[in-house]
Nucleic acid binder design. Sequence first.
DNA 1: ACTTGGCACTCGGGATGAGCGAGTGCCAGG
DNA 2: CCTGGCACTCGCTCATCCCGAGTGCCAAGT
Lengths: 337, 337
Amino acid sequence: MLDDRKLAVLRAIVEDYVSTNEPVGSRSLVDKHNLDVSPATIRNDMAVLEEQGYIVQPHTSAGRIPTDKGYRLFVDRLSGIKPFTRAERRAIETFLNGAYDLDDVVMRTVRLLAQLTRQVAVVQYPSLSKSSIRHVELVPLNESRLLLVLITDTGRVEQRVVELPGSVDEDSIMQLRAVLNACLDGRKLTDVATIVAELPARVEPRERANAAAVFSVILETLVARHEEKIVVGGASNLTPADFSRGLREVLEALEEQVVLMRLLGEFDDQSAVTVKIGAENDVSGLRSTSVVAAGYGSGDRPLAKLGVVGPTRMDYPTAMGAVRAVARYTGQILAES
Amino acid sequence: MLDDRKLAVLRAIVEDYVSTNEPVGSRSLVDKHNLDVSPATIRNDMAVLEEQGYIVQPHTSAGRIPTDKGYRLFVDRLSGIKPFTRAERRAIETFLNGAYDLDDVVMRTVRLLAQLTRQVAVVQYPSLSKSSIRHVELVPLNESRLLLVLITDTGRVEQRVVELPGSVDEDSIMQLRAVLNACLDGRKLTDVATIVAELPARVEPRERANAAAVFSVILETLVARHEEKIVVGGASNLTPADFSRGLREVLEALEEQVVLMRLLGEFDDQSAVTVKIGAENDVSGLRSTSVVAAGYGSGDRPLAKLGVVGPTRMDYPTAMGAVRAVARYTGQILAES
DNA sequence: ACTTGGCACTCGGGATGAGCGAGTGCCAGG
DNA sequence: CCTGGCACTCGCTCATCCCGAGTGCCAAGT
């Protein structure tokens, strides 16, 4: 269907267009890449490529630019992931190693990814549903209010204020704390729901009302607030020129946690780098962008996802390389702590 | 110097220009606002206003637009703060009341402010240096690592991993925790530095090495990390048309916590709404924007600042009204918890 | 001392049209 | 199947023109 030269032509078109942002014509193609055939031959190839939907010309008698389908073929068969040099890897590693807590790790990861790719970076916090509880803490605020603090093994700390139906004293708090830690410590968050259901039996009857309030907040935190946390950075890398409909709608989408969750949700958990091009993202507002994302985790356990968002006219090999490298090192850092 | 009519003309120019984004000429001025004089008279007034630097014409023989100085006069003497209707206030209140923890309060505040003003909203977390410690928690991660959790009375929860020089057992942790809570509970964070300095005397000698590690992390968290947290929202309200040098530099500035800190730092702590116009912000990248900000706090205690950032061509009365109202209610919510 | 109508002037912006050049499709010959 | 040649298309750029909004100034009126 498409012989080797036609593929080479497509690859050349993508590369040139990505770097120049201008439709590429047959002549400049044979010049820059040393294809040893004439422009006319290339034109014939391009005619075929266009017919098959891999490229289009924005105006009659202008050069060609790749379509989503063209980029897709490019990513799947014509380009690899650009590996990083040893020096670059080292730089990434030392930069991430400077972080001192989870927030800082995530912040640095976002900045790093944005800078490496010159695109918008998107990093999801380690998913709550994949973490285990490391500690539960109850801090009295006043007679009828507690602060509940959940600490997970991935370093996330979730807090919620609990409004108690009655008042409590220090003793009952101690007792409740003990029960909670005894039963929840080290348990997967996904299991917590069922465990909590059995807990009321383990507290004294007269404490049950207050305990129930605490339990329900725990459940809410894990279920209702199941929406995960996502951080965005590098928005200034968006250039108005790349988005015909204005980058407003892109900015809007990037500000909506929910939208971003949907976006990343469409990528699978695996650590492999995956690319979604243009309309393949069925998230309104980002249909004219491409997303390169990967899962990251400590060791073999997938924790969450990260990636970059940019115009379809994107340097995919480099972006994929950066996402892979950053995912790997961020995972490593988290494994250590 | 400037008689009443000239001031009225300036006000009219500002109002028209803000709403239409087009230079305003003498004719349209007498039409829309019912000044009962002729265009020629207005022209004379405008000539004076221009001479004094309140307005300029972008091109010879176009209408006039206000200068920074013009906006300044407008804000100081020609416009009040637009009060909110009862319904609007109620909407604000109920929206903010839905929040269940500090993160949520801040997030809602940002969204609300951005939506009310259709500008970029900037909200600073309650300042650490103005909070007191409510509780200190130590959670062992492994033999030589602790997670230190500081909970403040403003609801902020700060966490840091502490690398210990030696190993610790549950007992010594308990002891340390007790000492910390006994000495730090309820203390102003600003005082903590001096208190911590005296602490080593209160732990057993053989624990001092580990304790010192914990203490130094506490100090770092409060001093080195004295940089406060700021959240930005509504970036999609930025319209390219408003920023000649491209909104890229604005986006860049908004992504830098440090820059934002400097920006808000120039406003005083008081709860009064303050406006900085254009070049009055000596923060690079935001010299072509205006900032409307106010302090907020629970009760009479100032905690932090919030505000909006937008083009100098901004609806100041409304923005000021929104900032004032939101600051007030956010302060109220925080006071309750 | 202001205000007003009149008038000449300036200039930005939109419309029009010519010329250029990059790029294409097609065809006939190697 | 490749190649050179050729006619054709069209998007840009530039120059020109014109219009209209808006100004500044002045002389006359109140």
